[in-house]
Structures are given as structure tokens and as C-alpha cells.
Design a binder for these strands. Sequence first.
DNA 1: GCTGCGATTGACT
DNA 2: GTCAATCGCAGCT
Length: 224
Amino acid sequence: MTRAWSALTGHPAAVAPLLLGAVLTHRTADGAVGVRITEVEAYGGVGEDPGSHAFRGRTPRTEVMFGPPGRLYVYFTYGMHWCANVVCGPPGSASAVLLRAGEVVEGRDLAAARRPTARRDGDLARGPARLTAGLGVTGDHNGIHLDDPTGDLWLDLDESRTGVVRQDVVRSGPRVGVSGPGGDAATFPWRFWLDGDPTVSVYRAAAPRRRTARTAPSRGQSLP
DNA sequence: GCTGCGATTGACT
DNA sequence: GTCAATCGCAGCT
């Protein structure tokens, strides 16, 4: 079958695997970087998926998720990282697919310049925040349409250009880093990746709770 | 208005 | 293997 935007409107867990192999291209004055998607995660809508930002309803941040499919939802996390999602549900459903990792297929040098800490080409877009960094995607791109081949950001779904993904290499499993109320969200097998691809991110189970980073000023601290 | 913490990464032991 | 960085959002007072 041929991937098309019309086929990418539906339940995120059904849409997510269809995005594997698609190529997201970002064009800037510096040049273009293209990333072939190798790993994704599905996030459901209001009241359905505790791991989703939209679980508790519409907020200013999640506004884009509630809009029409085919747009990019970009959010800021950990005070320094951007993560990119493709909105896939019909308006109001707030479903999206997180782009977790990919392979740089165009503009390797530009991507490497944006990711100076990457040691290998395979690390240029391995991980959700690395993928956005390599592409040069930030919050400025939140809400942008991805279905315009002439736009700054374009998600190419045409298998005659991106290559056909063999379904027997598509794997699924628990999502990464998700620990919603009750922890149930992490158990949804809504993570999809291309088996054996070196750009797929390392699986780490969601940490229950990291030790408080900030050590409170010790009460018994001695003064000089 | 205040506070806790996160769909992460890179540096360090 | 452990842990800090860093800030906007969401929930609560």
C-alpha cells in the first residue's frame, strides 16, 4: 500500500507504525536536513492515555494536539530539550505520534554541526531530543503543517522515494520514559521501531522517581 | 503566586 | 552504573 496523509488519520497506535520509514525534511538558509524515521511512540487522547500531555484535557500547550492531523506538535522538556510529534487524530481527539529516532539521510554535515557531541552518524538523530536538534526543529515550528512538499518542514510519505518498509522488521513494545498515574501508561505497547536499525534509541524503563536533585541546605551545616 | 517534576541528554564515577 | 542541568507547565494553596 502507499502511505498517504489520509491513512494517517486515526488511532495513534495504528498510525504510528505507518510513519516508520517516512522522511522528515527541514529546509533552512543553511541547507536541508532529512531524517528517515526509525522509531516512534503513540500517544492517545483525553482520558485515554495517562502518558499523554492531552490526558487531562485541552490546555494552551496542547492546543496543537487538538487541531487537525498533519501538523507538528513540539514541546519543551527538562528545561533544554525539544521533542516533536505528528498530530494524527481527527480534530478534537488530541492524538499524536512522538518521533523518537531516525537516520539522517540528507544534510549529514549540517546535522553534525547542530549535534557537535554526536560521536557517530548513527547518533545524530538517535533519541527524541537529538532528532529535533539535528533537524534544527524548535518550538518555533509548533503547529506547522507537514504535508506541503514546498514547505520548510515536510514529511515525505511516498514510498517510491523513501523506500518500502518491510513489515517483518517492525517491532513494538512498551514506551520509553513514560510513567503516568498508576504506571499503566508505560505498559501500552505503543512504541514502534525498525528492528536492528542502529539509530533506534536505547530502551530505558521509566525511572520511578529520581532522587531529589537539589540537596536541601543541611540544617546542621557548620559555619566557619 | 508557589512548587514539583518531566515523552532527556551528556558528563562523570 | 549515577546524577546534574534547566525551565515551562500544571496542579495546588
